[in-house]
Design a protein around this nucleic acid. Structure first.
Lengths: 256, 256
DNA sequence: GGATATCGGTTCATTATTTGAACCATTATT
DNA sequence: AATAATGGTTCAAATAATGAACCGATATCC
């Protein structure tokens, strides 16, 4: 791995659950030598990608990242556009709604709305979702470029639960159904007792760029709930797609 | 400069005005060899920090940055907390309002609200503000750690206009006034014909972490306008500080 | 239409940077 | 008082980064 990759994988050790980490911890988890880890952290700190707490000496992600993310967001106003509709959907369904954007080979959770109830599905911002075993992934692949789909189906497909689909044919079927239906369904593909529906958000070129999904405990989910949430998530995805692409319906032919 | 620094300075070439750049362009602007530039871009792309447009082959900032920025934001909900108040202030003043966060040695513009009028001050997201020549910078330093202030006053201080204060003593006086008054005033310190007021947003430790500012064309700004905007920006900053710190007024003694 | 310039991308011997075991100084634990 | 963490530093050895020259493909110009 190149030095740049190492520096970035250091950044990727931070999460919502553990937003601050010490030098030794970072060194241990990354597998890099302590001296190396520190040199990388100093370089990252010098550019505002990492900050060091004056008191605890622990490190955390820096403001420089916010800056760059906002510059990106100015070009692709994905969050700005989608978040209000995620909120609406969360209110309407009273279940967890999460928004994801595609990155490299997985979906990245960029926004989450949790319902105000104790028994709920918990999703963290920044969480990475595999394509084959989540409703979001299936919805994404249903409208993704062939290359991305092939890359996913070629790689090793982890079975996270007894229900996870790992047969390429079964996954392809799942995608086909999602395409016809307008939304995907994933029954405990990533975690026991969780059932999700999702729909793809399309870019101007007609290919998916992200997804919106509703995740709920299976125990309180009837078939009618699935259908209702599915239609709602589909409507939200379509609305976001249209707002992103200037209400240009022509372009959205693939989803029509 | 280390490899990591080079990679990051490549990222910093992107801006709201130029969100997509080609390989040759990036190589030229960074001063790195084309081969080096490309190797860095490939490394960055592999981690989602940069994306390449399939058609034009141009590069742009990637989704991985959004992910990390959101993780940071989950710990420091600066934007979430502040943006509604920035909006309010923009509506109330009918002038440009911008929000900044401190990073390394400057303030980073993380949010902007522009009024719906042609003649206005334009500020871009991601824009970097020097500490000594902006209302935000003065407001920040008025409540910053001594080290940060000393570092600023020690370095070379550019005179951007004929009005820019470059004397450390004059800048210190400006800070003192801001501390007493509750908000800073900067009269054409960065650009001719622009007058701004700003107030510091404080962290739980009582030190500034960012600022909120109102910038307006000097031509339509009377003394009374300055006072009015100053009080408004101060109120907004205080409200943001309180919301960030759980309404703990004790902690905000420094601003009292 | 043919010459020219620019684009993105690649190669590989040379060069400069990164690496990590061993080392401090501090600060909790035991 | 001893032990084991912590964050941080050093420098010879190992490794990765570098860049001039190259390629093929577009775009531009006369």
């Amino acid at each position: 791995m190149g030095t740049v990759g190492k520096a970035i994988s250091l950044l990727e050790l931070f999460s919502v659950a553990e937003p601050e980490l010490g030098l030794s911890d970072l060194s241990r988890r990354s597998g890099f030598d302590k001296a190396t880890t520190r040199r990388l952290l100093v370089a990252l700190t010098g550019h505002g990608f990492v900050e060091q707490d004056a008191g605890t000496r622990h490190y955390r992600l820096g403001a420089g990242l916010s800056r760059l993310a906002r510059i990106r967001e100015a070009r692709f106003p994905f969050l700005q556009t989608a978040v209000p509709l995620v909120r609406e959907l969360a209110t309407a369904t009273a279940e967890t709604v999460h928004l994801s954007e595609f990155g490299i080979d997985r979906l990245v959770t960029v926004h989450v709305e949790h319902p105000a109830r104790a028994n709920r599905v918990n999703v963290d911002i920044g969480q990475l979702l595999p394509l084959h075993s989540t409703a979001s992934g299936i919805a994404y692949m249903a409208f993704a470029r062939d290359e991305a789909v092939r890359a996913c189906l070629a790689g090793p497909l982890d079975a996270f639960t007894a229900h996870t689909l790992v047969e390429p044919a079964a996954i392809a079927r799942s995608m086909d159904e999602a395409r016809v239906r307008g939304y995907s369904i994933c029954d405990q593909g990533l975690e026991e007792g969780v059932i999700s529906v999702a729909a793809a958000i399309l870019a101007a070129d007609g290919f998916a760029l992200g997804t919106i999904a509703v995740a709920a405990p299976k125990a309180r989910t009837a078939a009618a709930d699935i259908a209702q949430r599915g239609l709602a998530v589909m409507a939200a995805a379509r609305e976001i797609s249209m707002r992103l692409n200037g209400d240009n319906l022509q372009i959205l032919r693939r989803q029509a």
